[in-house]
Amino acid sequence: MSLSDPVRFPRVRARAILGSRPFLTVLLVAAVWIAASFAKPGFGAFGHLRYLFELGAVVGLVAIGQTFVVIAGGIDLSVGAIITVSAVGAPLVAIPGDGSGAFAILAILAAATAIGFLNGLGVALLRAHPMIMTLAMATFLQGLLILIAGGSAVSAQNPLLEWLGDARPGGVPAGVIVWIFASALALAALHATPFGARVFALGANPLASTLSGIDARATTIAVYAISGFASGVTGLLLLGMNGQGYVGIGDPYLLSSIAAVVLGGTSILGGAGTYAGTIPGAILLVTITALITVVNASPGWRSILFGALVLALLLLSGREARRR
């Protein structure tokens, strides 16, 4: 504990300087929304914006884990596979006496966290490169999925998940509420706890932080476990919104999660960034996707537009200062 206080003070000052990056992303979102609502009358309607936030919650939730991992200097390429495993697995672990479906949710979250924990073990103890470890995990999970689900879609019979996907207490979708709570937790953990300080230190310089007495292994394992948990929550939310889980349901979210993190100004090299930037980053991404859908182009053009727009946005906000 005595370590945390001296570490915390300069970090908050550094964050104030970096604060312009998340802010820039918010400005970008605002600009895109204003332009879009002029070009497309229905865009600015409350229902449509609420829908964007609902989609943004999915990207934002998975990006929580990705933000932790990237700040700690790693990358998690298995989030898509973990989402799929959660969405496909939840209906399969349901037990008869479990009326509310809480057991299935807890079991899936535990499994997703365990997968992330294994990723962390591989990176921290086997010293496999994060990209390789998580890619191999994704490959492994892909095989496992075919084994347990046989490739067919599975429907959820889970009241809690259905509520999560459909309910709108006070007009706010349940998924967005989950996202708000999770965001508050993530921001607090990153910027106001010793653990968050350790994550930043580890990403800035693993050797120096180890020499300074930080348990690099435990911290690494923890960030991957967080990523697994966040992906699990995302998978459950997707299942609730779709009503069905199928192999490949999580695939689009791997790229979205990384793009949201980088658009939000977090350094892909680790050690700098904040989840506060990832939030507008996620909303920006789903806005782009929605706009491209509106244009009604062929899949090829849609893909080209998405890639080109992400690239253009990166030029505006994602410039990486030369380090090393």
Partner: peptide, 9 residues
Amino acid sequence: LAASFIVGG
């Protein structure tokens, strides 16, 4: 990553 979308498209 962005290029993979453009090229794939």
